[in-house]
Each structure stands twice: as C-alpha cells, then as structure tokens.
Amino acid sequence: MDNLLTDRSFWVNYWERKTGLSVRIPANYLFHEQLSAIIKGQSVKTAIELGGFPGYYAVFLKKYFSLDVTLLDYFVHPPVTRGLLEANALKEEDIHIIETDLFSYVPEQQFDLVLSCGLIEHFKDTADIINRHIAFVKPGGTLFITLPNFRALNGWLQKSFDRENYDKHNIGCMDPRLLERICREAGLTVVQSRYFGHFSLWLEDEQQKPAGLRLFKKALWLVGKVFTKIFPFNSRQLSPYIILEARKP
C-alpha cells in the first residue's frame, strides 16, 4: 500500500529480534498522568489500542483502570502477548485481540478511548491514518495519539547515525499544528496538541551499535538531562514526544 513507510515483513523482523518483551508495566508508565485524567474526567469504560503490539498500553489500561480493552494490530505473536499478560497478573481473556489490517478493517464497535502510541508516523498520509482512528471513537469519546518528535535533537541523532530507522518515519507529521488542524477539519474538539517531555534520546537496537556511538549518545543524554533538570520546559528542539488529545462531539 503506497501510504505505508513500513510493511508487515519490517514489523515481523522488528519484533522477532526484540528480547525481554514480557515486562511488568508500572503505574507510572509513560503518559500515565494524561491517560488517568482522561479516564477519570470522561468516565471511560472501553478503550482500544491501535497498532499497539505487544499491547503495553492495553495492559496498562486493564491493569490499573479495569477498562474493557481491545488491542488491534496487523502483526500479533500470541506467545509474546501471553507472556506480557502473565507478567502483569492478567489472563488471556482480559484483553480482546484483533489481528487485522487497519486499512481494510471496518470497526464493529466504537470506544470511549482510542489511542495509539508511535503509529501514525509510519504512514505518508497523516490525515488518512488519523481519520481511521476517529472511526473507532464513540460520540463524546476521546482520541489520544502520541508520536516521537524527530524534529528535536533526538531526530538529529537518528538521522545521523541510524538513517534506515529515521527513513521509516514521516517527519512531516511531527507538527502539533498539523495534527490539530486535521482533527478540527474532522469535526473534533482539540484539547491539546503539543510537544511533550523535557528531554530524551534513544537508538533502536542500541546495544548493537558501535561502542563509540553509544558513549557519544550517553554523553549527549547526560548533558541534556542536566540542562532540562535546571530549565524544565517542553519544546520542539528538545522534547522527545508529541501528544494529541481530541474529543468527538
């Protein structure tokens, strides 16, 4: 499909080379404050995580908020999801799993909360992928999307030292104003669309990178952490993420 910056074989290879996926999800998992505020403020009962294999956020929402949770992805490896559920004292039936192509699947139900974390940036047509999210949102429900900010220093690191990974991302979609405009044009009320996080750096498969690069990355990370500890702020230049929250009328 021309809209894709990745394909199924990319994700099969990506997940098959990962180890230690069955981890215990903590209560202070990334974006926990934002999700908690949505769930409590909007009386959320049902949620779906799109493109979320192995299902970390689905597990988080079930484990700490007891929501009726669904995970949808076009690659799901059952042993990994089972291991993740067991690591978090959950049963297989605690999470509904749909393995399908988001571009051919017609939603059979809508949800109070629709979220994806690190999905939309892998597609060329940002409006199209966001509107596919919106199709899952109930009237009155919430859309919550997060994505990396590769327009920040972290993006420079990726572009300079892992160009193959960098090129799997649509850098153009990493713009809060663009995301806000797409949602408004779709009839949603935008609650927030902004850069998030003071500073962070990462590299895919970091332990396989040359020692010199790992040391350089660590030095940058330490300098950035110290600086943003003294001067904490969200910005395009340093924030590692973008978050979008919008409501459907």
Rank of each mutant, 00 (worst) to 15 (best):
N131S: 04
A186F: 09
D2S: 06
A127T: 14
N28W: 05
K248Q: 03
S239C: 09
H122Q: 00
Q208G: 12
S200C: 00
D73N: 12
M174D: 05
H32C: 11
S193K: 03
Q207Y: 13
T6S: 09
A47Q: 02
Q208T: 06
F53K: 14
D101G: 01
I242P: 06
G140A: 10
T6R: 08
I182C: 04
R151L: 03
G140L: 09
E204G: 11
E99S: 09
F231T: 14
I120T: 01
L115A: 06
E86P: 03
Q42V: 04
A186I: 07
G155R: 04
Y64R: 07
L213R: 08
T126R: 00
A135H: 06
L115C: 08
R132S: 00
R247H: 15
F150K: 05
V137E: 03
F103Q: 01
R132V: 07
E93R: 08
K45D: 03
K63A: 09
Y195E: 10
E164Q: 15
R214D: 02
S22P: 06
N170R: 04
H122W: 00
L72V: 04
E185K: 15
F227P: 00
A246H: 09
R194D: 15
P249A: 12
D205P: 01
Y56S: 05
G224N: 10
K40H: 12
G155Q: 03
K209Y: 08
G197F: 06
A89F: 07
